[in-house]
């Protein structure tokens, strides 16, 4: 009786896993099938500004968000005393992650773009997206820090090291793979974000020359191609852009993993 139920449950779980994988494979192959043939040299060179804007936005956002996010996670995990304050801070961070991105976009546009007069620019986008990726950055990093064995901290304290030295020399390096995962997740969010970027970085097709330049990321370009372009082969171009976007994300993932493995070895 029990055996039969086990078998049924197992079959169901295998089935749902297969379904999840199948959907992923389907989407990827569909996009690639429609996109790959349109990736030509000319097409790629026309996307150079979008590619550069995307990379700039990733770098800029991480420069702003990483120190704040990792610093917050360190405070929450290593310094803050458990209590009401800590749990309400955690709750606030969770709330931040459930706000729709268009609201971040609107807020960033109004505050940075209009009130502070940065307009549609990289800097407006950087700060807006930084706030957006903070929740995932903080919670992933905090989890990584908390999974560092307490015995490491005690060993360090017993040798006379203070909290700061223990954190910087032992805890943070041990949690580094988790911090990198947090950064990769953030990059995924930045690359994929459209609404907030459209409202803050803008849609200019030029290569940004400084932080105050507007630009167009791949995702925004994809949106514009699919929704607003009037040329007949806009949809094919959209597929091709999507294909490129997938490769960019994969490439960044691999690059980050490779560099960190190389550093550790």
């Amino acid at each position: 009786m029990n055996k039969r139920r086990d078998a049924v449950v197992k079959a169901l779980m295998v089935l749902s896993t297969a379904a999840a994988c199948a959907v992923l494979v389907w989407i990827l192959s569909f996009i690639m099938a429609n996109g790959l043939s349109h990736i030509t040299k000319d097409f790629l060179s026309s996307l150079v500004p979008q590619l550069i804007t995307t990379v700039y936005l990733i770098a800029g956002t991480l420069v702003v968000a990483l120190p704040i996010g990792v610093g917050t996670a360190i405070y929450l995990s290593e310094y803050a005393k458990p209590g009401k304050l800590l749990s309400s801070v955690r709750f606030a961070i969770q709330c931040l992650s459930s706000i729709p991105s268009i609201i971040y976009g609107l807020f960033g546009y109004v505050l940075m773009g209009t009130m502070l007069k940065f307009g549609f620019s990289l800097v407006t986008g950087m700060f807006t997206l930084a706030v957006m990726v903070l929740p995932i950055l903080i919670s992933t990093t905090e989890e990584a820090l908390m999974s560092v064995p307490q015995a490491y901290r005690e060993g360090s304290w017993a040798l006379g090291a203070g909290r700061l030295r223990t954190t910087m020399r032992i805890v943070l390096p041990t949690a580094l793979p988790g911090v990198i995962t947090a950064a990769i997740l953030s990059i995924g969010r930045i690359v994929g974000e459209t609404a907030a970027v459209y409202l803050t970085v803008g849609t200019s097709l030029k290569v940004p020359t400084n932080l105050l330049s507007s630009g167009r990321t791949l995702s925004v370009h994809l949106y514009l191609l699919a929704k607003e372009a009037i040329t007949p082969d806009a949809f094919s171009e959209a597929y091709a852009t999507a294909t490129l976007l997938i490769f960019v994300v994969l490439g960044i993932n691999l690059l980050v993993r490779l560099t960190t493995r190389w550093k550790k070895g």
């Binding site: 015995a151 490491y152 005690e154 060993g155 017993a158 032992i170």
Partner: peptide
């Protein structure tokens, strides 16, 4: 300590 705790 009770359990060996070398740093990584």
């Amino acid at each position: 300590f009770q359990n060996p705790n070398p740093f990584p």
